[in-house]
Nucleic acid binder design. Structure first.
Lengths: 224, 224
DNA sequence: AAAATTATTTAGACAAATCTAAAAAATGAG
DNA sequence: CTCATTTTTTAGATTTGTCTAAATAATTTT
């Protein structure tokens, strides 16, 4: 197992994130993401290409190799486990977590991370709802679950409604619940199994919403 | 609050540790400690002198300034808190703890360390028994305590016996308990308040020793 | 399709941290 | 006290990661 410098790791991680959206990643795109200059990116790309971490032909953009992806997943795993630790154990707020994890993720002891994982109880999602890769770099993707089965306070996103009738959609619309809406269950009322949700609207405002069990049974979410 | 590079921090820390023993620290001494070359040390000393972290006249060795000591204590605090975390929470063994803490100590977020400190319950000693400086860099030195009051499994060292009679010394000698002997209390028996100790002899072997409450009340220790 | 614009790469420079080899200063042995 | 030895510093080179400015390639506009 080879070790990479902080700068190399940051480049690999950035390509990993950008490449999920578009296909190949361009020089300018990467330079913008890393707040560096295109010339510096080209230099680094040559080095990472020589180390067989990515595919790169001049003027063609970059794409991680299989090995490069493996390295990237290791970095992502470290980052997200630290985020979980910071939020869950040290009581950092969601916003603060990222910057500190950026530093901690470069500490390279494999044993440290595996023991941290164990200590945290093998969490599957970080505080932002992003999945945490396992020891082998596998991401255990979120299965769709009914919102009635969603754990309290776990960030999720509406991804499916099973009934597409006019009546249901009218109700959803009224409550500002749409595919893609970010949602957490804040409370479950045993009396009528209604749910209190906290949603984040497209305009980034949060709001409280009550939904009946009849509605809830038709809403499916996945962890964000 | 300024940030220092990993290399600068390692130099400051090494001087801090060496200077407690001898007075001024010499170039060769420091180079040996850091597994680097004397020429490299000289270069770094000039830089740290310019940053007012230490006093350095060519050929005269180095000594940390007040500011330098403050920085060193910050690094030591981080190192020892991480050691405590690794041993206590992640169940690393004593030997493994140091190397990983060497990496973690350079993560610079002040808030991270203070929250970690709080999470750990403001421990005063790391797993090796070394004191952990507080937020202000103060080291709270070990008061002498009677071995009957020593927490289980906390490494300590015999520093005083209150009764100096021939009878007591004979017994201590027989049990290989001397001033300076490293000792931990492994078990306290409620029935007769006798203690089971684990001691490390001068020849670095460990042994189990049982002592009565009468004897224990005369043995004073401090955290190592 | 040529010109203009944009993106990318190359060339050369720089700072940080290290090294080797050589010079200079301090120390210590006779 | 002088000469040999040891310690420390200086001088100059190297590596890594970055930059600016200029050159080149690709893309878009007219």
């Amino acid at each position: 197992m080879v070790n990479y410098s902080t700068s190399e790791e940051n480049h690999i991680k950035a390509i990993f994130h950008l490449q999920t959206h578009s296909g190949n990643v361009s020089t300018n795109e990467l330079a913008r993401e890393l707040r560096t200059k295109p010339a510096s990116v080209t230099d680094m790309m040559k080095k990472l290409r020589d180390k067989k971490l990515l595919h790169y032909q001049p003027y063609q953009g970059f794409r991680l190799s299989t090995e490069g992806k493996k390295v990237a997943l290791g970095i992502v795993r470290r980052h997200r486990l630290w985020e979980y630790f910071l939020a869950e154990k040290l009581k950092f707020s969601w916003e603060e977590v990222h910057a500190v994890a950026e530093e901690l993720e470069h500490v390279s002891s494999r044993k440290l991370i595996d023991k941290l994982d164990e200590y945290l109880g093998f969490p599957r999602f970080d505080p932002h709802g992003d999945p945490i890769p396992d020891t082998e770099g596998r991401i255990r993707y979120n299965p769709q679950i009914c919102i009635t089965a969603l754990e309290l306070n776990l960030p999720a996103q509406i991804c499916h409604v099973s009934d597409q009738s006019k009546e249901l959609l009218e109700l959803l619309e009224h409550k500002q619940l749409r595919i893609g809406t970010k949602v957490e269950v804040k409370k479950k009322f045993d009396f009528d199994q209604s749910l209190e949700l906290r949603i984040k609207t497209a305009t980034k405002q949060t709001a409280s919403v009550m939904i009946s069990v009849q509605l809830a049974q038709n809403i499916f979410v996945k962890h964000v």
